[in-house]
Computed example of a mutant assay.
Amino acid sequence: MTDPTRPTTILEGTILAFTPVPQQRRRADGWTPLTQERFIRALEAMGSTGAAAKAVGMSRRSAYKLRDRDGADGFAHAWDQALDLGRGRMFDYAMDRALNGITTVRILRGGAVDVTGGPDMALVHAALREPDAPAKGTKGTK
C-alpha cells in the first residue's frame, strides 16, 4: 500500500531513485517528472550531460538550472550516480575496443572489398583523457 503523504519517487528500487524537482510552471515542453526520469536514464546510458539533455529535447544549460533549483537534491544525487555509471560504461566500451579491436569494411572502386581490423585508437585516447576514468582494476566503480 502506498502512503499518500510520501512524495512520488522515480526509478523506485534503483540507485537512481529520486523525487522529481517540482515544476515552477506547468509546461508541456518543460522539465516534467517524466522528462527528468528520461534524462537520468539517458545520462546513465551515455555518460554525457549534453548528450542526455539533447536526447530528451532539452538544453544542457536548462538541465544545470534545474539541478540548481530548490528541492533538487534527490535529482542532483541521481544525476551524479547516473553520470558515474555512464562514464564507467563508456570507459569499459573503449577498453573493449582497444583489446579486441574493430573491423572496418570498405567497398573500393570496381567492387573490391577491403577489410581491416585493429583498435579504435581515437576512442581509446578519448576515454583515457577523461578525468574521471575508473582506476585500474575497478571495472567502472569508485
Rank of each mutant, 00 (worst) to 15 (best):
residue 76 A to S: 14
residue 72 A to E: 01
residue 17 A to K: 05
residue 15 I to H: 12
residue 80 D to F: 09
residue 50 G to H: 12
residue 120 D to K: 08
residue 47 G to L: 09
residue 38 R to D: 07
residue 22 P to Q: 13
residue 105 V to N: 05
residue 25 R to M: 10
residue 110 G to N: 10
residue 58 M to P: 00
residue 71 G to M: 07
residue 52 A to G: 10
residue 62 S to E: 04
residue 101 G to K: 11
residue 106 R to I: 02
residue 10 I to F: 13
residue 106 R to S: 12
residue 50 G to C: 00
residue 37 E to Y: 03
residue 78 A to M: 10
residue 119 P to Q: 13
residue 102 I to C: 14
residue 8 T to A: 09
residue 62 S to M: 06
residue 19 T to W: 07
residue 45 A to W: 09
residue 109 R to G: 15
residue 86 G to P: 06
residue 70 D to F: 03
residue 105 V to D: 05
residue 43 L to R: 10
residue 39 F to C: 04
residue 91 F to A: 06
residue 14 T to C: 08
residue 34 L to V: 04
residue 118 G to W: 10
residue 31 W to D: 04
residue 116 T to F: 01
residue 114 D to E: 15
residue 107 I to Y: 13
residue 77 H to E: 13
residue 6 R to T: 11
residue 108 L to Q: 14
residue 27 R to P: 00
residue 6 R to I: 01
residue 117 G to K: 10
residue 49 T to Y: 08
residue 54 K to T: 11
residue 37 E to T: 07
residue 40 I to E: 00
residue 14 T to Q: 03
residue 69 R to V: 00
residue 4 P to R: 04
residue 47 G to W: 09
residue 5 T to C: 01
residue 96 D to Y: 13
residue 95 M to N: 02
residue 119 P to G: 09
residue 44 E to A: 15
residue 33 P to E: 09
residue 27 R to E: 11
residue 84 D to I: 12
residue 17 A to R: 13
residue 97 R to V: 01
residue 113 V to R: 15
residue 51 A to L: 08
residue 31 W to M: 06
residue 117 G to E: 12
residue 14 T to D: 07
residue 68 D to E: 11
